[in-house]
Amino acid sequence: MAIDAAKQGDPQAFEFLYHLHKRRVYSLCLRMTGNTAEADDLAQEAFLQLFRKIATFRGESAFSTWLHRLAVNVVLMHLRRKGLPEVSLEETTEPTQEDGPRRDIGASDQTLVGSVDRVNIERAIERLPPGYRTIFVLHDMEGYEHNEIAEMMGCSIGNSKSQLHKARMKLRDLLQLAQSQGARAQGNSQA
């Protein structure tokens, strides 16, 4: 109903659709960029494109799916224009100096189960290199498959898989680091 009215240029229908979908679109933009100002601009651009193209929406897919895909494309175009720092396949998941001492990848003397809180995971996702973050958000958070990601990003399916693996490893590394820092801080406060 609101979609039909928006196709006719009804401002209230536009506003209704904006308020209905703004959180999902904005959250996607924020997770993919890790920057609130960019997320604001990109969410705005996504809605503008939505309303410019709404007459072409034929209803073959769900409206929210269509809008979501459109928003992803807006963010990807932006990252491409910005010169998305590609993360090469050779890049290792070795911690940087600021990450602290190196740990063996894959070694798990403590699992993360139960110890990952919202703040830590938000922070860890933000700290991912942009290429890794994009693929992690699209695959593990938004449910896109590797072939869809490869098509959207103009990369091979193998590249998408490889970067997802490295993103997960890097996230795990960051979260383990946060966990050990948290435990150390707790120990110091008790001493």
Binding site: K22, R24, Y26, A43, V113, V116, R168, R172, L175
Partner: peptide, 18 residues
């Protein structure tokens, strides 16, 4: 187990208001 935890918790992150 860690990958499953990370993906599950990441999906549960609340959507954010602009």
């Amino acid at each position: 187990e860690d990958f499953q935890t990370i993906a599950r918790k990441a999906r549960k992150l609340a959507s954010v208001e602009p």
